[in-house]
Amino acid sequence: MAHSAAKAKLGSPATLLGDNSCLPAALRGLINDPQFSDVTFVVGKERQVVHAHRCILACRCKVFQGMFSKQLQAAKSSQELQVPFVLADMHPEVFLAVMEFLYTNSVTLNNVIALEVLTSAVEYGLDDLRKLCVEFISKTLTVELACEALQAAVTYGQSDLRKKCLSYIERHTVEVIKTQSFRELSDLGLQSVLQSNRLTIDEVPLIQAVREWAHVSSVVLDLPISVVAMDVVRELRLFLLSPDELTALERENRKDELIPESQIAQAWKFHALKKVSEIQPHLFHRRKGTIVREHHRYLETPSK
């Protein structure tokens, strides 16, 4: 009873906050500081040594917590705990950006490292860092980086970044298709571009860009052009082409067999019957940048 009365007299405890900037500022000074550090990493081809503190990394990241726990369980002596972790595939600047986030909950990014930091954020399960990377990349997209960012978004399932990249590519399609990063897209990445109705380009130069992409991919993957482009060319809208353009396409196609003959035959069938197929109606849809041809009046699917 006396204890309860004393507790009631003291009142409810309160948590009081000091200056929020003090702790991150103090922790920032610990980044890569060898004094008091108890774990080291050897990072990148440069084999740069980065010093860190197990307790901070473990409480901020479950991946590091698992790494340290396994090392502790396997260690037979205290000396074995001093063996550095080797991160040969990561650039030191990228790793230090991850460290900055873990110590301060903030990160300094630029266009050179942002995509790699995003990759590391996904791999280390750092969702807040992932969001910061997506925000930065979305706001700083350029013609040269748009497809590279899209590829990262597709590879790591980042739907929010994927939408931002596609929106940028839709507005700058003519410039983007000329970039090296466009030619280096995966088939899934390119398919996501070709599925858009809002590309600001006509189908003829778009098909030529896909042909150039296929030639590059064929060399890189050491596979026939028809194989590497098998799924991609299904998204080409041949029904938008005029008879003269289809004839020119067939002539070009004999050189590399980019597009299956059956797919071209379907386009000729449309010109003969003037009838839109209900199986793949989106392939009859004009894109935002499509130049209008005389036969396009037949493209609309009849209303039921």
Rank of each mutant, 00 (worst) to 15 (best):
V143D: 02
L145K: 13
K131M: 08
V233C: 06
E135H: 09
L145P: 01
R286S: 07
S12V: 12
P243C: 10
L240E: 01
A5C: 13
R47G: 10
S196D: 03
K139E: 15
F101Q: 00
L246P: 06
Y168D: 03
S303V: 10
V49G: 11
L188P: 11
V227H: 13
T200A: 12
G11D: 00
I31K: 13
Y124P: 05
D128Y: 10
V83G: 11
L102I: 06
Q280V: 11
C22K: 15
D89R: 11
G125D: 02
N111V: 05
L150M: 05
E300D: 12
N197Y: 06
L161N: 00
Y124D: 03
T247G: 09
N111H: 08
T140D: 09
E100K: 05
Q266W: 07
Q191E: 15
N20T: 12
L23N: 11
S37Y: 08
N253M: 03
A153R: 00
P243V: 08
Q266R: 13
V276W: 00
V219W: 09
V134M: 07
Q73Y: 11
H51K: 12
L238V: 03
I259K: 03
S37P: 08
Y156W: 12
K131R: 13
T104V: 00
G189D: 05
V204N: 14
V94H: 04
I259L: 06
A97P: 02
D202F: 04
A8M: 08
P34N: 05
Q79R: 15
Q158R: 14
E250P: 03
E170N: 13
V117H: 10
A75Q: 15
T290V: 11
Y168N: 07
V227W: 04
V94K: 09
A267H: 03
F95T: 02
R28P: 02
S21K: 12
Q71F: 02
A149K: 04
K164Q: 13
D127N: 15
R234A: 01
L223G: 04
K70I: 04
A248N: 11
V122Q: 10
V94R: 07
Q180V: 12
Q280R: 14
V117N: 09
D33Q: 10
E135I: 05
Q73F: 08
S4D: 11
I137F: 07
V219D: 14
L221T: 08
H172K: 12
Q195F: 06
T15K: 07
V193G: 05
L161P: 02
D128W: 10
K255A: 14
K9M: 13
Q208V: 07
E235F: 13
E245C: 07
V42G: 13
A2H: 13
F270T: 01
T142K: 05
S138K: 01
F85D: 13
R198S: 09
V112G: 04
L249A: 02
F64H: 09
C55W: 04
T15M: 03
A149Q: 00
A14G: 05
F85T: 12
C165H: 02
R183F: 01
S120Y: 09
G18R: 14
W268M: 09
D244R: 15
S106N: 12
I201G: 00
G66I: 00
G29C: 13
S192A: 15
M1W: 09
R130V: 04
T173Q: 08
E235M: 15
L72T: 06
R28E: 15
L283P: 01
E46G: 09
V232P: 04
Q263A: 14
K45E: 15
E300T: 11
K275A: 05
S196R: 02
A88K: 12
